[in-house]
């Protein structure tokens, strides 16, 4: 009888523990990508990465690095975007570069939802969230309202980096 009372007494708390553990486990997994990207976007903002404009970077050196595992051989140019306003559209152009370059889009859950390679050519892309503009033939829908656009250019020397910075003058990241 005493054993039975003990089981009854602890059944409720034990069930509560199990339910809380399962709920917290899945909530952590579900929200982790958003939290990580939210912190990354805040960090980028605090480091001067503009919204709806590409920010010309410094060459990656031990003294200038901001993101883990950045490559000193690449030119990185970043643009934060926010498509919260209904009807807004992000228009992005990656200028011409003779060597490897890519234009990649990341949503607010860290997913790389689009990457375009542009070795030796200029590439343009529009991105919308709510609905495509009527005259938009090349637009892509972003999975989330906020995110980051990243241009990578192969620039392993100081001379190549300076040339990449010059090429970046043709880059554009505008909201309209």
């Amino acid at each position: 009888m005493r054993g039975g009372r003990c089981v009854t007494r602890w059944f409720g708390p034990f069930a509560t523990l199990i339910v809380a553990a399962i709920g917290a486990h899945w909530a952590t997994l579900a929200f982790a990508p958003n939290v990580i990207m939210d912190r990354a976007l805040s960090t980028l903002k605090n480091r001067g990465i503009a919204e709806h404009a590409f920010t010309t970077p410094q060459r990656i050196m031990p003294q200038t690095q901001a993101v883990v595992r950045s490559s000193p051989d690449l030119f990185y140019s970043l643009c934060r975007f926010d498509l919260s306003e209904r009807g807004s559209e992000l228009s992005v152009t990656m200028g011409e570069w003779p060597d490897y370059q890519s234009l990649s889009f990341f949503d607010a859950e860290t997913n790389n939802f689009l990457t375009l390679r542009g070795t030796g050519k200029s590439v343009s892309q529009t991105v919308y969230f709510h609905a495509p503009p009527p005259d938009d033939a090349i637009g892509v829908q972003a999975p989330t309202k906020r995110g980051v656009v990243l241009i990578r250019r192969l620039a392993p020397t100081q001379k190549a980096f300076a040339a990449a910075a010059e090429a970046a003058k043709a880059d554009a990241c505008n909201i309209r």
């Binding site: 509560t16 339910v19 709920g23």
Partner: peptide, 19 residues
Amino acid sequence: IRYGFALLLGAAFGVGSAL
């Protein structure tokens, strides 16, 4: 108190195991 403790312990275990 038992329920509150169970809730906290369960949540901590759930978050920790997920991480």
